[in-house]
Structure formats: C-alpha cells, structure tokens
C-alpha cells in the first residue's frame, strides 16, 4: 500500500475489489429504503430491494469462492447481479461489472487508471445495452462522470458520481419506466443514478480506509 491516491503506479489485487463490493452491499442495505422510495416516485418501487438482494448474493459468492484476479472478481459479481436482481438494474449493473472484468483480463494486480479504463468500457456497454445517453435521467448520469473522475482519484470519482446523481433531479426521464411519466418525472432524483453514486462512494471509502 502506498502513499497517495494520485500515485498512478499504485496497484491493487482481487481483495481490494472484493472489499469494495462488500462495502457496496453494506451501503445498499443501509440505503435500500431510500432507493425504493425514490423508485416509488418515478419507477416501480423495487430498486432498493432488488439491489439489496443482488449485492448480498455478490458478497456471499465472492466470500465463498474468492476469485484470484481483479478481473474475475468483477465478472463473477456481474454474472451474479444478472441472475439475482430481477429488475432492469440487474442486467445493467451486471453488464457494467462483467464488461469491466473482461477488460481487466487476467492480471493479478491493476492500477486505478486501469480500473477507470475498464469501468469506462463497462459504462459504454451499459449505454449500448439500454440505449441511453448522459442527460436521459439514468444511472449513466452518475456513471459517466464517476469514471471520468476515477482517472484523477478515487475521491474525485465518488464526488463526481454524487454530483451527477443530484443533477438528475431537474431532468425529464427519457429511458425506462420513468419515461412514461413525461414531465412528471421532473423534480425527482433518479434511483439508478443514486445507486450508482453509492457504488463510487463505497469505492472512495474503501480506498481511503486502505490508504490506496
């Protein structure tokens, strides 16, 4: 473990990502009611429960059979999300992590910059899968700035994701069930962008706790 988050040669292994996803599971568990409340305003009120189930399954799988490489951690987690979430966030987050895991390949240690690049590939796959762009009031409004921020630091990624999620409030939804509401979707924070912000807040927390 090295000195600062701006040290681009700092590397981490599979364990760091396992601990990140465990932190996500804790945060999602704590925030599940809030996510579901946001989703009940413009969605079908299942986002919190769905993600709670999904990330609990991810944590259990990773604890029972810890993958050897950072890439395998993400592909395993992604596969688990697709199979357990039950809502649209399952294939979306599943694709994000699975594609990112593939991009990391077989390396045993990777840098933050590699992770940013890999998650960037994952975000592109999410955009393609759902056909959404930044500004459509979706998880991409948090994910795209988060990955951009991750090129600088973990803290920047967390802050950018949170800012992106808050910025969905005045937007009109153009994708997913919320888009059926038209102008009535304005004034509500997007649940998917909110859970995406949780992911990157947990990443920043994990990095800070480990001095990475």
């Amino acid at each position: 473990m090295g000195m600062g988050s701006d040290d681009v040669t700092e590397t981490f292994g599979a364990g760091f990502l396992v601990r990140w996803l465990a932190a996500v599971a804790e945060d999602v568990d704590r925030e599940a009611d809030r996510l579901t409340e946001l989703d009940s305003a413009i969605g079908d009120a299942d986002h919190g429960a769905n993600l709670k189930r999904g990330f609990a399954a991810v944590t259990e799988t990773l604890a029972n059979e810890p993958p050897a490489t950072p890439g395998a951690v993400l592909t395993t987690a992604g596969r688990q999300l697709i199979s357990t979430v039950g809502g649209a966030s399952g294939p979306l987050y599943g694709t994000l992590l699975r594609r990112a895991g593939k991009a990391l390949g077989e390396d045993g240690e990777v840098t933050r910059e590699r992770l940013a690049e890999a998650l960037g590939a994952g975000v592109a796959a999410v955009s393609q899968l759902g056909g959404a762009q930044v500004g459509d009031k979706t998880m991409l409004d948090a994910l795209v700035p988060a990955v951009e921020g991750l090129r600088s630091s973990y803290e920047e990624a967390g802050a950018a994701a949170e800012k992106g999620a808050l910025a969905t409030v005045p937007l009109q939804a153009r994708k997913g069930r919320a888009s059926y509401l038209g102008e009535r979707s304005i004034g509500h924070q997007d649940p998917g962008a909110t859970s995406s912000a949780l992911l990157f807040a947990a990443l920043a927390d994990t990095a800070r706790a480990e001095g990475v």
Binding site: R79, I82, A88, G90, L92, G94, L129, G176
Partner: peptide, 15 residues
C-alpha cells in the same frame, strides 16, 4: 419489456 429485454440482451452480449 424493460428488464426482460435487458436481461436477454445482457445474456447474449456477455454470457
């Protein structure tokens, strides 16, 4: 619709 479309697409694309 929705997650049914996305789940099948995700399985075909990644799995």
């Amino acid at each position: 619709l929705g997650s049914a479309v996305l789940t099948v697409k995700a399985l075909l694309a990644e799995g």
